[in-house]
Structures are given as C-alpha cells and as structure tokens.
Design a binder for these strands. Structure first.
Lengths: 105, 105
DNA sequence: ATGAAGTACTACGACAGACATAGTATGACA
DNA sequence: TGTCATACTATGTCTGTCGTAGTACTTCAT
C-alpha cells in the first residue's frame, strides 16, 4: 500500500491553475482546515520528481505582469499529469476499500 | 502522509487470535476479496519491526497439539500493539478526511 | 518411491519518498 | 536598519517496500 498522496494533492491544486511552492503549501493547509501541512522539502522534491516524470512543467514568472516582485518557479499540470491524477484517484478509491476492511472506528 | 497500512492490516487480524505469516497473507487476500495481496518480504519484515517495537510477540508452535506438522512462528498482539492499532485507526480517519479533499471521483 | 505443488520461512540488496538540517536570497514593512 | 515573510536549494539519513534468491519441510498424485 504505497499511498503517496502528496502528488495527488499537488496535482489537484494545479488542475485549477498554475501555482508555485509557497502558495501550494498554503492552499494545502487551508483546504484541509489546518489538518495537514506539507513539509517544504517534501513539496519541492515532489516538484522535481513530477517534472522529471512529465506530470508538470515549470516556468519562471514575476509576481505581476510588469515583472515586479519576486521571481517564482510556477508549475503547470500537463496532459500526462492529468492522466496520472485520474489514476491516483482511482488508486485511492481502491486503497480506501481495502484499508477500510481492517479499520475499527 | 506516511500511511503504512500494512501494520494496521496485520494487527487487525491478530486482534482476533494469534496467527502466522502464511495464514495472515491468505486472510488479507480473502478479506479484501483478492483486491490486495501482501508481498512475503513485506509481511515478514513487518513482523520483525513490530516485534522489535513491542506490538507483537512471537512463539513457535506445531500445526496440532500433538506436535505434528510443520513448526511455525506465530505472532500474538500485545497491549502496546492494541494501542498502536487504535492510534493507526484514528490516523487513518484523519488521513482519509485530508486526502478526500483532493480527490475527484 | 518420486516429483511437483504448497507451505513456511530467511537473507540480501536496491530504491524511492519523506524529512531533518541548514543555508541563501529577495521583498515588505515598521 | 532590521525583522519577518517569502521562495527556494543542497545534502544526507532513514524507513518501508519489494525484487531476487535460496532453504526446507509436507502433502499428494502417480
């Protein structure tokens, strides 16, 4: 049961629009009502891995259109990433079914 | 999200009665309607780890009371194991809540 | 009686994801 | 001018999973 859900979380956020590390980490926190906070190193190494696997693409951009503010590395989900996300969702449903058999509430 | 559910599965089986490798692996398969099959090495290394952590205890016994049949290493859940199992169940509920926010069915 | 299939493991090594620790650098704001 | 928030990178360790391989005993059909 290798349930690497980090990729799923990140990709689900990128489905809406491109984003970058700091913002994604904030979003994960707010989406989960503070129940989960992703570690920085975990997040950034997920970016590297997923870009290598072709699930996301990076591009550098400034905070605003005039090129002011900090430069950030944004990530955009690819078609392969969307497929991967779908697979991950299906895998999750299966994992859930399986694990639930062994859980006592 | 380090959801090592193997320990949870194994412990939930040992809650009922002591058991051993081969039998547990069969049970996991039948309980999940064949949806999940644990790898032998994963199972046996989980035994070692959990015994080291005090969640299970091992004892060697024969197939029947007369001492006939193969000798097997049985495992019995400990009190610490029961606590650990409860914690794991609670952790699972939390993980489920968290992950579900990022899943599209 | 012999061989194949099922049972019951152990040993070893490789790999990947998570994360601790640490450091760099810029921008905002008081 | 300094502190805090932002936005990362580098490095190394640890742990769980699993591939591969091998051992040994039991059961059962031929």
């Amino acid at each position: 049961m290798a349930t690497t859900t980090h990729d799923t979380m990140i990709l689900s956020i990128l489905l809406k629009e491109p984003s970058y590390g700091y913002e994604i980490s904030k979003e994960i926190k707010t989406i989960t009502d503070g129940k989960y906070v992703i570690k920085e190193t975990t997040l950034y190494s997920a970016f590297t891995r997923m870009e290598k696997n072709g699930y996301i693409e990076s591009f550098v951009a400034s905070q605003d259109l005039e090129g002011n503010g900090k430069k950030r590395t944004y990530y955009r989900i690819t078609d392969a990433g969307r497929d991967f996300y779908k697979d991950k969702c299906a895998e999750w449903e299966l994992t859930k079914d399986v694990v639930e058999k062994f859980i006592t509430k």
